[in-house]
């Protein structure tokens, strides 16, 4: 009923709690955080002017969060997944390093500002592989091209349909919009 593991776990936790209570008071009195290293994102610009991002990125994110969750708005601009896609770094083997790793984009700055985020307990810290391939290769972000590209990957060819003369001008207009 009471496993040994849970007993040691409890003892460990009780001990750690006491210890952290003690240590935090010590640390808060005299620690100096290092200046963060902020690696650049991919591409030329961020989704908003850099100084605006620096100041207000959380506002965009929190607004986007509610818009997506409650209203199903799925615009890319302020999506958390997009931040990750652009700001993730790769190591020398070409594997992604999680964005919330200590020296990485989001985390280095937050450590400096002593902000603690829980976002990445749930949100992916690296792009889904298919998703990032799309981003690297596509000149435009339009939905249509993304879909067309996905079909190309799957070996289908309906993406040519954009130029299909049998489609009425109207329909193409709406699609492009």
């Amino acid at each position: 009923m009471f496993s040994l593991q849970s007993i040691t776990g409890v003892i460990k936790s009780a001990f750690l709690t006491a210890l952290t209570l003690l240590l935090t008071s010590v640390i808060f009195s005299g620690a100096i955080a290092a200046e963060p290293v902020i690696p650049r994102g991919k591409g030329e610009f961020c989704v908003e002017p850099t100084d605006v991002m620096r100041k207000d990125h959380m506002k965009f994110l929190l607004h986007q969060r509610d818009a997506t969750v409650y209203d199903g708005v799925r615009t890319k601009k302020h999506s958390l997944n997009e931040c990750v896609t652009c700001h993730v770094q790769s190591n020398t083997q070409g594997d992604f390093i999680p964005v919330n790793a200590p020296d990485q984009f989001c985390e280095s700055c937050h450590t400096f500002a002593s902000v603690k985020l829980d976002c990445f307990e749930c949100h992916a810290t690296t792009p889904d592989s298919e998703h990032s391939a799309l981003r690297e290769l596509l000149p435009s972000k339009s939905m249509l091209n993304v879909m067309a590209f996905r079909q190309k990957l799957e070996g289908r060819s309906t993406y040519h349909a954009v130029d299909d003369p049998s489609l009425s001008e109207d329909l193409i207009g709406i699609l492009k919009e």
Partner: peptide, 26 residues
């Protein structure tokens, strides 16, 4: 309209057109 026109290869695109746009709320 698509049903009337009986589009062949356009079908995939028609589905696309039916999708809610990203900005649109449910």
């Amino acid at each position: 309209a698509a049903a009337v026109a009986g589009l062949g290869s356009g079908l995939q695109l028609v589905e696309l057109a039916l999708a809610k746009s990203d900005e649109e709320a449910v």
